[in-house]
Design a protein around this nucleic acid. Sequence first.
DNA 1: CGGATCCCGGTTTTT
DNA 2: CCGGGATCCG
Length: 653
Amino acid sequence: MTYSSKAKAPDKLSASHLNYQKELNPAQYQAVTTVEGPVLVIAGAGSGKTRTLVYRLAYLVDQGVPPEQILLLTFTRKAAHEMLSRAAQLLNRHLGQVMGGTFHSVCYQWLREFAHLLGYASGFTVMDRADQGDLLQMIKEALGFKALAPPFPRKETLADIQGAMVNKKLSLANILHRDYPQFINHEGPLAKLFAAYRQEKRQQGLMDYDDLLVNGKLLLLEHEDVRRELSGRYHYLMVDEYQDTNHLQAELVRLLAYTHNNVMVVGDDCQSIYSFRGANFRNIMDFPQIFPGAVIIKLEENYRSTQPVLDLANAIIAEAREKYTKCLYSRQPDGCRPRLVCAADEKEQSLLVTSEVKNLLRQGVSLPQIAVLFRAGYHSFDLEIELGRAGIPFMKFGGFKFLESAHIKDLLAYVRVVANPRDALSWKRLLLLQPGVGARTAQNFLARIKGGFPLEEAQKCLAQQRQGSLKQLADLLGQLGDTHQTLVSRLGLALEHYEPLLASRFDDYPRRQRDLEHLLAITSRYHDLRSFLTDLSLEPPASLADVARPTHEYLTLSTIHSAKGLEWEAVFIIWAAEGRFPTFYAEEKKEEEEEERRLMYVAVTRAKRHLIITYPHVGYNRFVGMSVNLPSRYVANLPRKVLESWRATISEP
DNA sequence: CGGATCCCGGTTTTT
DNA sequence: CCGGGATCCG
């Protein structure tokens, strides 16, 4: 451990006057000041986990550790930014040099530096989920698998299967057997398809999300010098939300700690809600085996919620089949009991939330202190209409994917082919947009530029085509590649070209046009095309949406997944009905059903003081028409002293 | 090539 | 029940 002397630097190096012992409770203090060797922090909901990470960052810097030697891995890049700026505030100095972000974005940066070692050009671009589906579809067609006896998986399912193989480390046969028995007959073709997929990505200079982790790991595993270099670059590792990491991420952590073992991970097994993308909360429990001698610290005091809210949370998680016991306790014994309210139907549920929100406002709770949470994005559609009618401003997080909508992808295709001319996927998208161009022309063009030609080559090829629109496009691409122009003006040119196509393609084009202008506004923050495109793929859309946020106060609507780590004075959980929450999807699979329970636990523990859980008594079901809903199993039949049951009574508007 | 029509399938969470 | 995708025809 060559670097241990740094953290043991004498206290006089402390530039700040922070009194760590006074500002933190004993467990937090221990977590903050134990900087050498492996540390596992089990942090219950609301136990000051973020505070602990922030103070630890500050502490390290206070001890004289150069910020650039710290690596902070978080679930979103926004979370990393926030922690850094809070630490900077504490110390009253700028900490620009700390490396922070998601595993994906950090791997991306290393791969830009070292991808050539893996036989990848450094100019690779990142594919999102939809791109993955499109490429798989192209291959499915090319291999003639559309003619196979149905059912053959559609492109979204293909992407799911591929993702499961990588993230859950299971063989194709295994996945098919476990989750997709209906496709077992097609195992052979599927194996071929996925092999071709891997090959195509490499040839086109594309990496999907999983590749970033897989290749990042490969880089560290197979290149001892790189491992040494990167491990030495960051002497102190901190990983947030460790319960939501998968085997690849755990392996990355192990490899990065190679030269020093200074690694702290923070997590809560009860809040593990991402197993659908391979997260495994056992990573937490295995941590002491992988890092022998790890110090284990539990944060159990909850600073967020009143005791009645915690009582409900504890009652929900008590039923979990498998968990590692923590005892959460609050300093605020008093507070109102959470309520379970049965509304007559969805409309009444929406009216109930609206009128209760108004109630809270009268009581002095401000709009930004209120959130409505739900299992799936579409669960709030009706409520959104009602809120609009009532004139309550709101912002919605999660669910809808701005960046994956067709018009955004169309516009981006213009610049993506400029950034990476080998990207056949974007070429195809771009070409098919042009009038007079169909599958045939696109195919011919792709065949001609196959193998990766520079942009000029592609331009020449376009100029030779019969269609006038393609000759025009060739000129435009020349301008888009002109790096003397600002990125905004280049994207502006693309938009100018795309707008007429947009109008003929979509009948709701005015709305889509506004989206595109919003995208252009985001662009002005960037100078470099590649980093712009990367951020769009790797940055959660919510943080990009900052520009569009209303300046006035608003109510938060969010999926529970997107609400992770956040808190509000008052929380509503809507559609807490069997079939929706837990989703009927998960009802039969034990492990998934367990995860739904944890999801409810996460939802409940977002509330500081007020908590209302509702469901509509009658709901519309596509198969059966009207049907009667039962309350979610996680909140039905709880003792009255934990959860009050009500029938909705609201005055009609 | 592009528009129209018909049929099937499937409903979720996200880097 | 709605929308995406496949197919067919002009």
